[in-house]
Design a protein around this nucleic acid. Structure first.
Length: 387
DNA sequence: TCTGGGGTCCTAGGACCC
DNA sequence: TCTGGGGTCCTAGGACCC
């Protein structure tokens, strides 16, 4: 049975949410970023800003050069998560097969429910209408026989687009699509394909599968499928969301530094944040990874596996700090540090396998969850340091 | 004022055990 | 006294996604 899959992608999501919250931002070029004064990049640019060439991942100076009148807005992730949750709830009214692909993207398998609403295209129009009416937000929707193609065609008419591709139209489409437009083919793979004389998906699909496997390993099979427009992967409902594999935080210093007190201070804060997030969802992990990026952008990762699972910020910090000292080459300036915990297990309730009593930490967590990060923290952390 | 921050998956080599 | 082979865990690095 031919499947009917919708891909829904919110248009300039973070920026559009901000423009809805603050009407004076509407119609103006804005960029959302994590901390507008610091060393950061544009997370999302409004369409007005995109008209000037401002794009995601651009630095603030670059964006300002292209668009001097751009308004920078601080990222408010909690608000976007809240809006996203409500958007996903609306999608769930049309099928229980909704996969939350990212904060602003979802796949819907409507194969079994389309007839209840008058067809997949009607569902798409209803969702658009609903999101516009309730939130003032637009989205772009692609409808296709599988996720790969739904995502591809959904991107063809942004913003506020609706693109449908029928099975018989797929071969002609694939001839027109260049490989780097496909989800899963990044710059490195695209360059490698170009060297093989492969530009379009049609060409990729005709390239012998065996040769692709020889060159790319297991990924060759996947590439062959991409070239043919084949994707059997199911839409995974959000309630089957797999457990997390890792949790981490990192930060770029506003100025490169080699001041150990500053580095330790931020490493400690990042570790506490990671521990708190692990505890919030009842995770504990055994492997601690430390990321270190020098001023010249060389980036290194070192990891260490512990004997016991932990979700204690202090334990994570101690392990991370030991890794830092092993890795760090002293006179060099540090640009970024990060810490993450992997090898996770999830408990349904608190058990004795954690190293320390939970009572104090969960009380501190509750306070911080309610009143904000680091309102209550360890005395060691109180020295007021600037980034 | 070049180059954020959060993830997942894959590969490849070495240690170690049977 | 010529050493195979399978399995698992660990670590480092890279590609890719939003």
């Amino acid at each position: 049975m031919m499947r009917q899959v919708l891909h829904i992608d919110m248009d300039a999501f973070f920026a559009s949410v901000e423009q809805q919250t603050f009407p004076f931002l509407r119609g103006r070029p804005i960029g959302v970023c994590s901390h507008p004064q610091g060393r950061t990049v544009i997370a999302t640019a409004s369409y007005e800003a995109r008209a000037y060439g401002v794009k995601t991942a651009m630095t603030i100076p670059q964006a300002r050069k292209l668009c001097p009148e751009i308004t920078l807005v601080r990222c408010n992730l909690a608000k976007y998560i809240d809006t996203s949750t409500r958007i996903m709830a609306i999608c769930s009214r049309f099928t229980d097969s909704v996969e939350v692909f990212s904060i602003d993207e979802a796949f819907l398998d409507v194969t079994n429910t389309a007839h209840l609403f008058g067809g997949a295209d009607t569902i798409a129009r209803k969702i658009k209408q609903e999101l516009s009416g309730r939130f003032g937000l637009t989205c772009s929707i692609g409808i296709a026989p599988n996720k790969l193609l739904a995502k591809l065609v959904g991107e063809m008419h942004k913003p506020d687009g609706l693109t449908i591709i029928r099975p018989e139209e797929v071969p002609v489409l694939l001839e027109k699509i260049i490989v780097e437009e496909m989800c899963g083919i990044g710059p490195k793979t695209a360059a490698k394909l170009h060297r093989l004389g492969i530009k379009s998906c049609g060409e990729l699909g005709r390239y012998p599968e065996k040769a692709l496997v020889r060159i790319f390993g297991v990924k060759g099979v996947h590439l062959h499928h991409i070239g043919k427009g084949i994707d059997e992967s199911p839409v995974r409902p959000y309630f089957h969301k797999p457990p997390a594999k890792s949790m981490g935080h990192s930060m770029t210093f506003d100025k490169d530094t080699r001041n150990m007190a500053i580095i330790r201070h931020h490493l400690f804060q990042l570790s506490e944040q990671v521990g708190r997030r692990l505890r919030k969802d009842n995770y504990a992990g055994r492997t601690v990874s430390l990321v270190l990026r020098y001023a010249d952008f060389t980036t290194m990762v070192r990891q260490h596996s512990l004997k016991n699972w932990t979700n204690d910020g202090r334990r994570i910090y101690q392990t991370g700090l030991a890794l830092f000292y092993k890795l760090y080459q002293p006179p060099r300036y540090v640009r970024l540090i990060g810490i993450s915990v992997s090898n996770l297990i999830q408990q349904t309730r608190q058990t004795s396998m954690f190293e320390h009593p939970e009572t104090l930490r969960s009380a501190v967590d509750n306070l911080n969850n309610r009143f904000g990060e680091f309102r209550v923290t360890r005395a060691q952390n109180m020295k007021n340091m600037n980034r």
